[in-house]
């Protein structure tokens, strides 16, 4: 992915030198034409066309912000209830992600999800230990949410 971006920047510079105008607009124009060239020759690269990955990263960022707002509403509901009748607990969550940065992003996402907080990661990076504020009703919804998170992260790293 980084190689494709570097190639695109080189193509932008190439366009600047070919036209002889050294303005940011000329670079931008060349960058857009380079994007078209890279899209045309995408079958010669090992990884995917890099714009798809950039879209996946932006998608992940929006998931982060949405979950942060939902988590705050969830905490508000728990806190302002007159009775403390939730049932907390720690459960193990086996993850399929491999890379360190993927685990880091996933556990940050889980920490910002309503009602869950990562307490520990097992040394072989296979299991996350998650403290849930209300373990009964949360379990299924949490699993479904986390399947979408893992899917979004794998979309970036694929």
């Amino acid at each position: 992915m980084a190689f494709q971006i570097l190639l695109n920047v080189f193509l932008g510079f190439m366009w600047m030198f070919l036209t002889g105008s050294y303005e940011p607009v000329a670079f931008l124009k060349g960058y857009l034409f380079g994007l078209l060239i890279i899209f045309t020759f995408r079958r010669f690269f090992d990884s995917r066309f890099y714009l798809l990955r950039a879209v996946a990263v932006i998608n992940l960022l929006f998931i982060f912000i949405k979950e942060l707002i939902l988590a705050n509403i969830g905490v508000l509901k728990v806190l302002l209830k007159p009775k403390l009748d939730f049932r907390p607990g720690i459960f193990a969550y086996p993850t399929v992600l491999k890379e360190d940065w993927e685990i880091m992003v996933l556990s940050n996402l889980i920490t910002l999800t309503p009602g869950t907080l990562v307490v520990d990661v097992s040394p072989d990076n296979k299991i996350l230990y998650i403290h849930a504020i209300d373990i009964e009703d949360a379990k299924e919804t949490i699993d479904s949410i986390k399947n979408t998170f893992e899917k979004a992260i794998m979309e970036v790293s694929r």
Binding site: R87, P88, G89, I90, F91, A92, V119, D120, S122, I127, Y129, I135, E136
Partner: peptide, 9 residues
């Protein structure tokens, strides 16, 4: 608290 999986880790 109802559950503690980390204790058996």
């Amino acid at each position: 608290s109802v559950q503690d999986d980390l204790k058996q880790a």
